[in-house]
Design a protein around this nucleic acid. Structure first.
Lengths: 187, 187
DNA sequence: TCCTCCTATGTCAGTGACTGACATCAACTG
DNA sequence: CAGTTGATGTCAGTCACTGACATAGGAGGA
């Protein structure tokens, strides 16, 4: 028999979600999460760099997915198409990992907490920077790369918030397509 | 004679800048800043909501400037022109309040510290949201308002980073014009 | 002039996020 | 079977921040 119950990380992940939904992020201490997961606070901080990260821990970070997709994109594609393709794949990954309801609950928690919004913005900025670098790798020049990355991330955010809102029956990747079309129709 | 030296806030502001530049943000405690300014830590937190805010405390927040400019914009202007006008005025305000060297030092500190990047992103997001709302007030419809606000803020960021980089002799407002032109030339 | 309220600050105790150092012990490895 | 490893526990410590209460100039009125 193992010395400890397996999957401490998974238990902490769901304990955190539950507690944040029950009491709110601010009123939940790291110790609360650890206790519900049956570990100590110290163990919590060994798995997550800080309390916020428990909400942003992804098995396959979006940056990586986007970067790989850009590297693998068709030669003939425009820069914007390359990033949008990457963003779409990230969307597929998210939809596989979480149900819409789970994503919505997470979004509600983040929306209620400025500290979490900051972290989300940082992740999005990281995605933008990564996409920009990946475009550069493909030979895209500088004003274009930045703008394309920035716009595609904007599309992703718009699509995600629409998907989560429940105003549409579309799946997340289709929401990305829809938002990308909206972007095109502005030029 | 006054009970305390006047302008405690101003002293804390410059003490913070100095210490961050000397030792770095992380190794500077709120108590250090307070001590150098000749006040107590408690007083520091009465003036600034948190340690990061000391770097983001603006006499006239950018949001307000942008919102006012959008409200006062010409009837005939396009949404993007309205926001760009607001962003340009914000640029004028910044250039009046700080020298380029001061802005560059601040930018260096922020760039070295993820926690500060998060806060900056939050401020930019707030500016975007405010601009979006101001556009709505002027009757601009929804997909357009969001995109225009988002793009104009992107222009602002590009302009600011170019101004601070020292690669150009242009003043900040002219950098905004330049970045806006670059945006136009993409469509 | 004296009294009173107001305001900016000081003082102090407390909570919670995180960190470093060290101990423990099942499981693996040879 | 002895040694090593890895995930965890334990504990003490630092620092960001907060609430409650005390203090004393200064402004304004009686």
């Amino acid at each position: 028999m193992a010395r400890w119950e397996p999957d401490a990380r998974g238990r902490m992940l769901s304990a955190a979600l539950d507690l944040f939904a029950e009491k709110g992020y601010d009123k939940t201490t790291a110790g609360d999460i650890a206790a519900r997961a049956g570990v100590t606070e110290r163990t919590f901080f060994r798995h997550f760099a800080d309390k916020r990260e428990v909400l942003f821990a992804n098995p396959s970070p979006l940056d990586e997915v986007v970067v790989k997709a850009i590297a693998a994109a068709d030669e003939g594609a425009t820069p914007l198409q390359m990033v949008l393709g990457g963003v779409r794949e990230a969307a597929v990954g998210i939809a596989e990992a979480r149900s819409r309801e789970q994503a919505a609950q997470r979004a509600r928690i983040i929306e209620a907490t400025p500290a979490l919004q900051e972290r989300e913005l940082l992740k999005m900025a990281a995605m933008t920077t990564a996409a920009q670098a990946a475009l550069a790798e493909r030979g895209v020049g500088e004003p274009t790369a930045a703008l394309a990355a920035y716009s595609a991330v904007a599309v992703f955010q718009a699509a995600f918030s629409r998907w989560v809102s429940g105003e549409t029956d579309l799946a997340l990747p289709e929401c990305v397509d829809e938002a990308a079309a909206a972007l095109r129709s502005l030029t």
